[in-house]
């Protein structure tokens, strides 16, 4: 019971969390808050609202969004192109920039890939089985949501750093985790872990185990059941989780900043490079990279809106015997 109340507004939480990454900017295009107020306010309430008040409220909302969301976006692109298109592309072609882009893509690929697998397994275990310590596992999945990313990064420093638990052993065996790709990947995996699991758990809980049981009783093996029944049923939720996970993985700053070591051309991801370049007054280069991240955000938003529409369709209980 407590478990289910935990998941009342997972999507809202995910959105809130994603937006802290500065990537998926939460324009309430298709969002839950908007839907809720639409549901609460009856048409009559809306009509009795005098015209001027309605106008003021809408104007306030629009100007707020303009100032806090649209304006920054415009500034990013304007600054990036302030010295012309050629300067923009030259900045992106810098070896440091290219290496940051490559590193970001690599880390995102690793963490999204692993979190996809872990997330599906964790969601599967939580949604479809009863076992001791389930509540604990759910809490554990949420941990990255509730811990500051900087602390998350520090945990890895404590574990793998020179003065850390395993530091001397790692040094003795010449294994580099901190200030190298593995450390950045680990930190990113940690902070992005909840996305896939969280977007799947409520979906899988709602769907129950009936279809899987039907598949098994029809002679399907475990793998056949997973690929032919479970996966098709969760695919939109899974894509949704992967999308948010990816946005966060590419945009993550805090945790990565702690473990990266800021080695130029080696361990700087795009967000880190943006900050470094900015601090060095290389505004065009800094905003050029930032514009890539902003574009990622815009693409994420569009895909997210499409996915949410698919998810809403999928959530109509189509197999419910009570609805005929």
């Amino acid at each position: 019971m407590s478990m289910q109340t935990n998941f009342v507004t997972p999507v809202a939480q995910l959105k809130a969390y994603a937006s802290t990454a500065g990537v998926a900017i939460a324009i309430p295009s298709h969002g839950e808050p908007g839907e809720r107020s639409r549901a609460v306010a009856s048409p009559r309430d809306l009509r009795t609202e005098p015209g001027p008040i309605r106008f003021v409220v809408i104007a306030l909302a629009v100007s707020f969004l303009t100032v806090f969301v649209v304006l920054p976006l415009v500034v990013v692109f304007a600054s990036a192109f302030s010295k012309g298109i050629s300067a923009y592309f030259a900045a992106l072609a810098e070896p440091e920039a290219l290496s940051a882009i490559k590193l970001t893509l690599l880390v995102a690929a690793i963490s999204v890939g692993l979190n996809l697998v872990f997330g599906v397994i964790a969601a599967w275990a939580i949604a479809k089985f009863d076992f001791r310590g389930k509540t604990f596992l759910i809490t554990l999945i949420d941990l990255p949501f509730s811990v500051s990313p900087v602390i998350s990064g520090l945990v890895f420093v404590l574990l793998f750093g020179a003065q850390g638990y395993w530091g001397s052993w790692l040094q003795a065996h010449n294994i580099h985790i901190l200030f190298a790709v593995p450390g950045i990947a680990l930190a990113t995996i940690f902070v992005t872990f909840p996305f896939v699991a969280r977007s799947l758990i409520p979906l899988m809980q709602e769907q129950g185990t009936q279809e899987e049981e039907a598949a098994i009783s029809l002679g399907a093996s475990g793998l056949q059941t997973f690929f032919r029944v479970t996966l098709p049923n969760i695919k939109w939720g899974l894509l949704y989780g992967v999308l948010l996970c990816n946005a966060r993985a590419m945009g993550e700053f805090g945790a990565v900043s702690v473990v990266s070591g800021h080695i130029r051309g080696e361990t700087n991801t795009m967000p880190l490079l943006v900050e470094i370049l900015y601090n060095e007054y290389q505004f065009v280069a800094s905003f050029a990279i930032a514009s890539l991240l902003a574009m990622l955000a815009l693409i994420t938003l569009v895909v997210k809106a499409v996915l949410e529409r698919r998810l809403d369709e999928g959530q109509i209980p189509r197999n419910d015997p009570g609805d005929h």
């Binding site: 009936q210 279809e211 049981e213 039907a214 598949a215 098994i216 009783s217 029809l218 002679g219 399907a220 093996s221 029944v229 098709p232 049923n233 189509r318 197999n319 419910d320 015997p321």
Partner: peptide
């Protein structure tokens, strides 16, 4: 034997048809 090996036809109370 597990369910998949028993060759037992099961019709569920709530149908459990594959919705996709």
């Amino acid at each position: 034997h597990g369910a998949s090996e028993r060759h037992v036809g099961f019709v569920f109370q709530h149908y459990a048809l594959f919705r996709h």
